[in-house]
Amino acid sequence: MAVASVVILAALTSAVLLGPFIWRVPINEIDFTARLSAPGWQHPFGTDDLGQDLLARMLYGGRISLAVGFAAMVVAIIAGTLIGAISGISRGSVDAVLMWITDLFLALPQLPLLLLVIYLFRDFLKNLVGPEGGVFILIVLVIGAFRWMPVARLVRAQFLSLREKEFVEAARALGATTPRLVVRHILPNSLGPVIVAGTIDVAAAIIAESTLSFLGLGFPPDIPTWGRLLFDAKDYLDIAPHWALFAGAAIFLTVLAINFIGDGLRDALDPRKVM
């Protein structure tokens, strides 16, 4: 399953990366004569209410959806590893405070807060770096900021057990400083579960971005992410179901493939095999 998923994900990724070079239809070419037409030779995925080609829009939107997913994963892993490492290596009050913050973040209602943050800061960032880049940075940072907690807990747990291992003690006896111990000896050994958590985070981030776009509060309307396509398509379900189906299927396939890969990685990295 995991291997097949890697193939599917690779196919999807290369399609959105290379596709626009092969399928050279512009994403915003309006053609009212081909309004809401069903899939056919002219438009393999059909067209939307303005006659814009859906295949081109899907390919373009896929780039953004996947980029948001991976970037948010990187943010979550960096923040999580940093907090988990600090908390795992320092005992006492620093550890307690950091873990209290982690638990607090785990109890936060994420989607309402995501919406709140985007509502409050959208205009500010838009003025700072332009509409597209501003929303991208904001969404990536915010999704990352609400996904680091599991990583932090995993890293901390790994640190707590690795810290007492013989090889760490040996390195310390040789005179290694604490930063060197952490970076060279403990951290590389604690990354296994982090990779699994990171894989699943990509899927969660893609869903989060699509949810925001679907609620009409993600990227601006002229940038067709997969969630945005669904949002636009939902008013035409009765006459143009293909519009919603292709975008939804793309999100579903990507997320399913990533989840299967995460599961496969977990099985491969977990020495304690079930049964």
Partner: peptide
């Protein structure tokens, strides 16, 4: 179960509307 939690709620919602209402 895998299919279930990979299907985002907004997509299943639209699918159900498409099948059972439309």
């Amino acid at each position: 179960a895998f299919i279930g939690f990979s299907l985002p709620t907004f997509f299943t919602g639209l699918l159900l509307i498409l099948i059972f209402s439309v």
